[in-house]
């Protein structure tokens, strides 16, 4: 557990969080290398199955980072994403996992600091929760 470095998948909206990550880089703000960013055209593109597959393939935590409420480039993709994240959280709780491994975060394109801060906070939260049960369980090799 001491050496546990979480693997985190972040689905980031092209119009906000991804640009915010860029901004964090431009400002030389450091954030944990544990966060692997997947750029999506809008968080509304992120389906529950994408989050579940990420967990199944060994991610310790997944977050979806979209635009601030009311600022979605496609009107309400971020609201849809938030509902899907809540759906996955409930599903994870129902199967005996911790729904907190999945989270919805919002920010604007100019919030480089917030991107770095949330990356740090989420990584720390997952570090506290420990490795994914999919990793610790026997037979993980069988999962494609």
């Amino acid at each position: 557990m001491e050496n546990f470095e979480p693997e985190i998948v972040a689905f980031c909206c092209h119009y906000c969080a991804y640009t915010a990550a860029d901004m964090a880089g431009s400002k030389r703000l450091s954030y944990p290398p544990n966060v692997k960013i997947i750029r999506v055209p809008c968080t509304g593109k992120v389906d529950a199955i994408h989050i579940m597959k990420a967990l199944l393939k060994g991610a310790d935590g997944v977050y979806v980072a979209g635009c601030l409420e009311g600022d979605c480039h496609f009107k309400n993709g971020n609201i849809r994403a938030a509902h899907r994240v809540a759906y996955v959280q409930k599903m994870l709780n129902d199967i005996g996992w911790d729904g907190e491994r999945v989270e919805m975060i919002t920010m604007s394109a100019g919030m480089g600091e917030r991107f770095a801060q949330t990356a740090k906070e989420f990584t720390e939260k997952i570090r506290q929760l420990g490795p994914s049960p999919a990793k610790t369980a026997a037979g993980q090799a069988a999962v494609g």
Binding site: M52, L92, P133
Partner: peptide
Amino acid sequence: RKEVGLLASALQLHFLKQGKTLD
């Protein structure tokens, strides 16, 4: 098809936690 994928993933995750690989 979508719900099949979702339920399959959820069941696999559940049983992985129990130490069982569900085919």
